[in-house]
């Protein structure tokens, strides 16, 4: 079997259904319908400087960054405990962490509404013990809860897999050389797990910054994000040019982000020696 011939279907498929469509998006982003033909135009991008859209972009970033940080702080200990554990239950727990992903994410997110809404489980409980009701939903906090809930497993797994590769003898060596457990963690375990954290970050940040479903369900449309604006431009307003400009912005964000993640990954992958010495 000719090996280069094996690549032809991939080349054709990628050219027609990946690269060409992206080129169309870029084309629409930099043009505008003038009435008598399409002309080169930066109008869509100048519209982005409108405080309303800038605010939406900033809010998307804010929510994605907060969600990613929460995922790191909540997920890292889970990955750490599981990776260091010798319990027989370990594999079962790892599977349990992944299992929710097999239930439709819209339904799981929607189910949070039954728990948190004004007549929901938590508020019913609060009322039963005589406490005032709390408005959990339809604000930024609820959107953050939704993104953390959906993407937490994507943070736990890469960190867990990286930490599994950590040789215990490195920690013993650190202890022999006088490091206390905290020092050993900060100078051996943490630097070792950086590639895992970085791939977790890329798996959480990109979908969080571009989501539109979670913001619609948990935010009740009151917390519009970039994804919501793009969806509106294509499905409601039918302004493909502006929608494409926003998509180009997202593509640039993703590219820049991936560049830094990859650089970090390469730097922290310079072999174990370099990592331990740092």
């Amino acid at each position: 079997m000719k090996r280069n011939a094996c690549l032809i279907p991939l080349y054709v498929w990628t050219a027609v259904f990946v690269l060409f469509p992206l080129a169309i998006v870029v084309y629409f982003a930099f043009t505008r319908d003038t009435g008598n033909g399409v002309a080169l135009s930066f109008e869509s991008f100048t519209r982005l400087s409108d405080p309303m859209y800038l605010g939406v972009i900033l809010k998307s970033f804010k929510i994605a960054i907060i969600s990613t940080l929460i995922c790191i702080f909540v997920g890292y200990p889970v990955a750490y405990i599981l990776a260091r554990s010798k319990s027989k239950m370990k594999l079962v727990i790892v599977i349990l962490m992944l299992l929710p992903m097999w239930m439709n994410f819209l339904l799981r997110t929607y189910s949070w509404l039954s728990i948190l809404e004004n007549t929901g489980l938590v508020n019913t409980l609060l009322a039963a013990v005589g406490l005032p009701k709390i408005r959990f939903l339809y604000n930024e906090g609820a959107v953050i809860l939704g993104t953390v809930y959906n993407y937490l497993p994507f943070m736990i797994m890469p960190i867990y897999i990286t930490l599994l590769k950590l040789d215990e003898s490195h920690l013993e060596a650190a202890a022999d050389l006088g490091a206390n457990p905290v020092q050993a963690f900060l100078r051996v375990t943490l630097p070792f797990s950086v590639p895992g954290i970085l791939s977790g970050v890329s798996m959480v940040f990109v979908p969080s910054v571009t989501t539109f479903v979670i913001s619609q369900l948990m935010g009740g449309g009151k917390v519009p994000l970039i994804g919501d604006v793009i969806e509106q431009q294509y499905r409601v307003v039918n302004d493909w040019h502006f929608g494409s400009a926003l998509s180009v912005v997202i593509m640039v964000i993703v590219l820049v982000f991936m560049y830094f993640i990859n650089r970090g990954d390469v730097e922290s992958n310079n072999g174990n020696g370099g990592r331990l010495l740092r």
Binding site: L10, P21, L22, I24, V25, P207, I230, Y234, S247, V254
Partner: peptide
């Protein structure tokens, strides 16, 4: 090099993939 292009649909934001394909099919 081939991989970094082939992995685009996995790494790119889903909404951009969706929108770009919708534009292609419509056009």
């Amino acid at each position: 090099l081939v991989l970094s292009v082939a992995y685009i649909p996995m790494l790119n934001a889903e909404i951009v993939t969706g929108v770009s394909l919708m534009l292609l099919f419509t056009l």
